[in-house]
């Protein structure tokens, strides 16, 4: 058996490594700007997952390094064998049951986050349609948002603090509508309409990225989301609606419907 002293050295090292790992996990700048309530929930989930993972990884590495340190073959032991230990039922039940409970706990928590992120907020919710096409995004604002004619634009504006429900469509192949600052994405699939819901919480401009290989121009299929105050949003959408109706009357007709 390994000496009591070496075991305490290893345990202390493992505890220190775990503490350091958790500390470092807070210092690392993991995510881009956090610009929605969904992003906040998902980032908390991520930190919980990291904190749960560090002790497990440290345990594995500690046992390996301890074995290399204490049990490596010494001169004169080249033909020696270890003790014939075939197993230990109690230990095996423990390392089956404990991870199962931990994993079910974590996945249950992730469902709570998922529910929080996706639950409807119909009172003040607005709908916008995002349409993917090789290799650009366009956005349709329905009459319920513009207060007049539907508007189609290559610009995405959303009001801060208000729930936005996106209807996502594709005209040719599959694209993925991803806004990293919101931590949300869903594929745009030909033939069906997909959705996600976000409540922006931070003013600013953030990248919109196509995140599913869609052909030659995939790397450059980018756009920008502008999170503005509700007042700015209403002003912007009114200006769009008036230029749209002043233009080739009904340029956006038929595209403003939501799925």
């Amino acid at each position: 058996m390994p000496s009591r002293r070496s075991l305490s050295v290893a345990s202390a090292a493992a505890l220190i490594a775990t503490a350091l790992g958790i500390l470092i996990s807070y210092l690392i700048h993991w995510f881009p700007a956090q610009a929605s309530t969904q992003a906040h929930n998902t980032d908390v989930l991520y930190h919980v997952l990291v904190i749960a993972s560090i002790p497990i990884f440290v345990l594995v590495v500690t046992v390996i390094l301890f074995s290399v340190w204490q049990f490596r073959v010494r001169p004169g032991e080249e033909l020696k064998d270890g003790p014939p230990i075939h197993g230990n039922t109690r230990l095996e039940v423990l390392w089956t049951a404990f991870p199962a409970v931990l994993l079910l706990g974590l996945v249950s928590y992730s469902f709570v986050v998922l529910h929080d992120n996706e639950q409807g907020r119909p009172a003040s919710e607005i709908q916008i349609q995002a349409t993917g096409q090789q290799f650009a995004w366009s956005y349709q604002y329905p009459p319920s948002v513009t207060g007049g004619a539907p508007v189609t634009s290559d610009k995405l504006y959303v009001p801060k603090g208000q729930s936005v429900y996106f209807n996502i469509r594709a005209k040719d192949v599959i694209h993925a509508f991803w806004i990293p600052a919101f931590r949300l994405q869903e594929d745009a699939v030909p033939g069906i309409t997909t959705h996600w819901r976000v409540t922006p919480t931070r003013l600013g401009s953030f990248p919109v990225v196509c995140n599913l290989l869609c052909g030659l121009g995939h790397s450059l299929m980018r756009s920008t989301v502008h999170v503005v105050t509700p007042t700015q949003f209403r002003t912007w959408i009114k200006a769009q609606a008036s230029t749209a109706s002043a233009g080739a009357g009904g340029a956006a007709s038929g595209t403003g419907t939501t799925g």
């Binding site: 058996m1 390994p2 046992v63 390996i64 074995s67 073959v73 032991e77 230990n88 095996e92 994993l103």
Partner: peptide
């Protein structure tokens, strides 16, 4: 998601079994 989390259990059993096999062995590195 539930089955994906649970499939880590048999994989974990294997990792822990290998670690326990190392324990008190005569390691040829």
């Amino acid at each position: 998601a539930v089955t994906t989390a649970i499939i880590a259990v048999p994989t974990g059993i294997k990792i822990f079994s290998w670690l326990a096999t190392l324990w008190r062995g005569v390691l040829h590195l």
